[in-house]
Every structure is written in structure tokens, then in C-alpha cells.
């Protein structure tokens, strides 16, 4: 089972939920898909090794064969090629690697070479949990490619937790797209609630069953809970607005390791999701 941890708003506690959850249940896999800012390992402290480079195939023009017809540049939707009187200019940073220029070139003058834009890494320790993460190189735009490559390493026979990036755009879709369940993490403030409703739209659109973790419970008001009750969205867990949790987070310590009783709560949440009985967890 693949469970994605997501939120519209950043900083609501996705990584906190993902890390504490995998530490509360045996035999989990964790995939840090927030490849722009992957933070899970700050809490796990695993030694990482490279699994593979993530690269995008970009065109290389063979100037001996090129007749400067410009078909490649006309075809490219990303303006990654420009036909100049003296030659074809390639802008690798704009290229999405679709291969279209090679397809339309009548002279077979377009070759491709990989351009590395990120990396997939893996924790060296495999027990009690297996950890993978993607990392987008600085200055690169295509987070989705790194996320897609990272997800190829999911072992579907075991439970996998996916820590998703914030927002509602393509990287989020790439991260949560093929999850079996989505845990939305939010806080009950005007910003948190507004972005939470966007995240609800995403998971509804993707037709993924979902539930909610209210983080910093006690902050703000009851608007998230009122909404969830009205919409019959299961509230899976509430994490209090507790200075101890905030301080442990600031130091990179998963709070289930220091605060008794929380491993059980996370494990119960996982069990409820896995067994499909989560709708009765806290709403009852």
C-alpha cells in the first residue's frame, strides 16, 4: 500500500507526519518526494548512497548533417531550440526531453545526450525501514522528472510512505498520483484552511481516498474540524500545538522517539488506513 503525505500549504508538518509514521511501524519504506527541499533524512540521519542520476535527454545537433531547415526549432514547444542563420542553438535548461526535435528532423541530425538534473539516493541502513530520496540540483526546474524516477524504486509488495512537496501543481500530482491513500496535513488557521481545501480538490480529482491530520491543534480555531465533519472527511490524528514538539523538530529529533504514547497513535492510524476503517477513527 502506498500512502502519500500531502498538504496545499508548506510547513504544515508533512515531513513530521511521514517520519514519525515510518518510525512507528515495522518494515516501512519511505520516499522523500519533496525533491526541491528533501528534509526527511535530517530526522533519520542515515548515511546515503547514490542509486542513480536523474537525467533529461537533450538534443545535440550534428552540424555536418543539419541543413538549417529549422523544423526542430519550430516544433519545440519549450523554446529550447532556435534556428539561426549560422546554426541551431540549443538551450538545454529549457528542454523537457520529449525527443520531438529528433522525430521531426528530416536529416537525422539530432542526437541526444543525457543532462543530469538530480539524483536518487538511498539510505545504507535497510532495517527497520528503507529510505529513498530524490534531490533536484540547484537551478534546475524539472522536479517532476526526479519524482517520477524516484518512484520507480517503490516495492509495491510492502507499505510505502511518500512525503510529497507542497502546493497543488505538477510535482504534487507526480508525487501523490499513484498513491492508494492520501494523508492531508493541515493546521486550523485561515491560511492552513484555505490551502487545505485546495489539497482536498487535488485528491478528489485524482480519486484518491484521504483523511486528515490536524497539526498544531489548538492554534487558530475549529474551522478545519467543522469542515471535515460537514464533508465527512475522516480526522486521523491531531498533533497538539506543543512547544516540546516544536523544539524537538527544530533539533531534528522525531518526537515519537521522545514522547511516550505517540508511536502507538501513529501505528493505530496506519492500521486504520490499511484496514480501510479510518473513517471511524476520530469522528465518531
Amino acid at each position: 500500500m502506498k500512502i502519500a503525505i500531502a498538504s496545499g500549504k508548506g510547513g504544515t508538518g508533512k515531513t513530521t507526519v511521514a517520519v514519525n509514521l515510518v518510525l512507528s511501524v515495522e518494515g516501512m519504506q519511505l520516499f522523500d518526494c519533496d525533491v526541491e527541499e528533501p528534509n526527511c533524512n535530517l530526522f533519520l540521519g542515515q548515511e546515503l548512497e547514490k542509486v542513480e542520476d536523474v537525467s533529461c535527454p537533450v538534443p545535440v545537433i550534428d552540424s555536418d548533417k543539419c541543413t538549417l531547415c529549422g523544423k526542430c526549432a519550430t516544433f519545440c514547444r519549450y523554446n529550447a531550440l532556435a534556428a539561426l542563420p549560422t546554426g541551431i542553438m540549443v538551450f538545454p535548461f529549457l528542454c523537457h526531453g520529449c525527443g520531438g526535435c529528433g522525430l521531426v528532423c528530416p536529416e537525422g541530425a539530432v542526437q541526444e545526450e543525457p543532462r543530469v538534473l538530480g539524483v536518487v539516493e538511498k539510505g545504507k541502513t535497510t532495517a527497520p525501514l528503507e529510505f529513498y530520496r530524490g534531490l533536484l540540483n540547484i537551478g534546475e526546474a524539472m522536479a517532476t522528472l526526479v519524482i517520477r524516477t524516484l518512484q520507480e524504486h517503490i516495492d509495491a509488495s510492502r507499505p510505502a510512505i511518500i512525503d510529497s512537496p507542497p502546493g497543488v501543481a505538477c510535482p504534487v500530482i507526480a508525487a501523490v498520483g499513484n498513491a492508494d491513500y492520501c494523508v492531508l496535513v493541515t493546521e486550523s488557521t485561515p491560511f492552513g484552511f484555505h490551502d487545505f481545501k485546495l489539497a482536498v480538490e487535488v485528491v478528489k480529482l485524482m480519486k484518491i481516498p484521504f483523511g486528515v491530520v490536524i497539526n498544531r491543534d489548538g492554534l487558530g480555531d475549529s474551522r478545519v474540524e467543522d469542515f471535515c465533519r460537514a464533508e465527512k472527511i475522516p480526522i486521523l490524528l491531531k498533533i497538539p500545538n506543543d512547544m516540546r514538539i516544536a523544539r524537538l523538530y527544530s533539533e531534528g529529533i522525531p518526537f515519537v522517539e521522545e514522547m511516550p504514547g505517540w508511536k502507538e497513535k501513529f501505528a493505530a492510524m496506519f492500521k486504520a488506513i490499511e484496514s480501510g476503517s479510518e473513517s471511524g477513527v476520530m469522528n465518531a
Binding site: N39, F43, I138
Partner: peptide, 18 residues
Amino acid sequence: PTVSGIHDLKRVIELAKH
């Protein structure tokens, strides 16, 4: 001032410098 905040700050500073 959290471990995540520090990690992410270093990356945005690098981005701006880039």
C-alpha cells in the same frame, strides 16, 4: 532555526547566487 529551515535556507541562498 530548525534543521529543515537551515537545510532549505542554504539551498535558496545558493539558488539566488546562481
